[in-house]
Amino acid sequence: MGLPGHGRYQYDPIEGRRTVEWPGGKRLAVYIALNIEVFAFGEGLGAELAPGGPQPDVLNYAWRDYGNRVGVWRLLDEFYRLELPVTVLANAETYAECPAVMEAFRRRGDEVVAHGRTNSERQGVLDETEERALIAETTDAIRQAEGHRPFGWLGPWISQSRTTPDLLAEAGYSYLLDWCHDDQPVRMTTRNGGGILSVPYPQELNDIPAVVARKVEGREFAEMIVDGFDEQFEQSARQPLVFGIALHPYIVGQPHRLRPLRRALEHIAAHRDRIWLCHAGEIARHWDSVEA
């Protein structure tokens, strides 16, 4: 009697896999995932700085709103100063709620990954028709704003139904970021036979699980980033790896967390000649070319 499974990939230990390299002979691909999110006022989901009271929960709504009004601009200064590419995980409603944020990243030429409509909802609880509509609405909003469609997806709240990979592949997506089960991209099967690539997205080096859930503060979170980077940089001598950092402007854009984060980003940038600083989509495209 076997355990119920997802059927998307087989167990494959990282030891013994074939060795490939990232462009330029690099061994560690590094990307920064910046979550640009918007939230409904007085209803729906949202991370909490403190236990929320009855709706409207002004404390936590306003805390999250700080990210798009202030925090993201402080982070942008660092991305420019250190010449770091950013993968923007954008709620579609961001284009209507705070268009200046998306325009700022468009000027930089950063990649936009689809991140649902808002982070006030989960997609995994929808039926297939509703979920297909959510994917289509999100894709169309980004296409209209950016002039081209996104090819990467991260579900709001890392929420998937049992058919999400199938629906994403059928909607033309080539990779997703919801699964944190490996340090290399993994090909997932889909019902249409084409498959979809899972690119590693961090849940450990992610400021929501760290700061909001585990109550880690800025200095410790920055130390986690440095330690994780240094360890994976050493491990990458054995096989190519992906190192990601997941950030939210309303968390690490707060001044007392930004200062230690700055030092962690400087540490990574100092290794730029020995790592591949890139977008998540570049990782997916390169892996696809190697698999072909």
Score class of each variant (00 low, 15 high):
Glu223His: 13
Ser161Leu: 09
Gly195Phe: 07
Val212Thr: 15
Pro150Val: 01
Pro260Asn: 11
Val226Tyr: 03
Leu197Ser: 10
Leu258Ser: 06
Tyr175Ala: 02
Gln160Phe: 11
Arg219Ser: 13
Asp182Asn: 10
Ala246His: 04
Leu167Trp: 06
Pro185Cys: 00
Thr190Glu: 01
Glu231Thr: 14
Gln160Asn: 15
Thr189Ala: 07
Ala210Ile: 04
Ala246Asn: 08
Pro255Asp: 09
Phe221Val: 00
Tyr201Met: 09
Pro200Lys: 02
Arg187Phe: 06
Ile158Asp: 12
Tyr201Val: 03
Ile251Asn: 04
Ile251Met: 11
Trp153Gln: 10
Ser174Ile: 08
Gly253Phe: 02
Gly253Ser: 14
Tyr173Lys: 01
Trp157His: 15
Ser159Thr: 11
Ala213Leu: 15
Ser236Thr: 06
Val226Glu: 07
Tyr175Asn: 04
Glu234Arg: 15
Ser174Thr: 08
Gly244His: 04
Gln203Phe: 14
Leu205Trp: 01
Ala169His: 04
Gly244Tyr: 07
Gly228Gln: 02
Thr189Gly: 02
Arg187Tyr: 03
Ser161Arg: 07
Asp183Pro: 01
Ile158Val: 12
Ile196Val: 06
Val186Ile: 06
Ile225Lys: 01
Val212Ile: 15
Arg162Ile: 09
His256Cys: 10
Leu261Gln: 07
Leu258Tyr: 05
Tyr201Asp: 04
Leu154Lys: 14
Pro156His: 01
Tyr201Thr: 04
Arg219Pro: 09
Pro249Phe: 04
Gly172Gln: 03
Arg214Tyr: 14
Phe151His: 14
Thr190Arg: 03
Asp166Asn: 14
Tyr175Gln: 01
Asp227Tyr: 07
Ile196Lys: 06
Arg238Ile: 11
Pro260Ala: 13
Leu241Met: 08
Gln203Gly: 13
Ala171His: 10
Trp157Ser: 13
Arg257Lys: 10
Arg187Ile: 06
Pro200Tyr: 04
Leu168His: 00
Gln254Leu: 12
Leu205Ile: 09
Gly195Lys: 02
Glu231Ala: 15
Asp230Tyr: 05
Asp183Asn: 09
Thr163Asp: 10
Gln160Met: 14
Pro165Trp: 13
Thr190Cys: 01
Ser174Met: 09
Ser174Val: 00
Phe221His: 03
Phe233Ala: 03
Arg219Trp: 07
Met224Glu: 06
Ile225Tyr: 00
Arg214Gly: 06
Val216Pro: 14
His181Thr: 03
Arg191Thr: 08
Ile158His: 12
Pro185Tyr: 00
Cys180Glu: 13
Met188Gly: 11
Asp207Ser: 08
Glu204Ala: 10
Leu241Ile: 00
Ile245Glu: 05
Leu261Phe: 05
Gly218Val: 11
Asp183Ser: 03
Gln203Thr: 15
Gly155Trp: 08
Arg259Pro: 00
Pro185Gly: 03
Ala213Cys: 15
Ser174Cys: 02
Ile245Gln: 02
Pro255Leu: 05
Phe151Gln: 13
Pro260Lys: 05
Asp178Ser: 00
Pro156Arg: 13
Phe151Pro: 09
Asn192Ser: 12
Gln254His: 10
Glu223Asp: 12
Ala246Lys: 04
Glu231Gln: 01
Thr164Ala: 00
His248Ser: 04
Tyr173Trp: 04
Val199Ser: 00
Pro202Val: 11
Trp179Gly: 00
Val211Arg: 01
Asn206Thr: 11
Arg162Leu: 14
Leu261Ala: 03
Glu217Ala: 09
Trp153Ala: 05
Glu217Lys: 10
Asp178Ile: 00
Leu258Thr: 06
Ala264Asn: 04
Gly152Lys: 07
Leu177Arg: 07
Val252Gly: 03
Thr163Leu: 14
Ala237Tyr: 08
Phe221Trp: 02
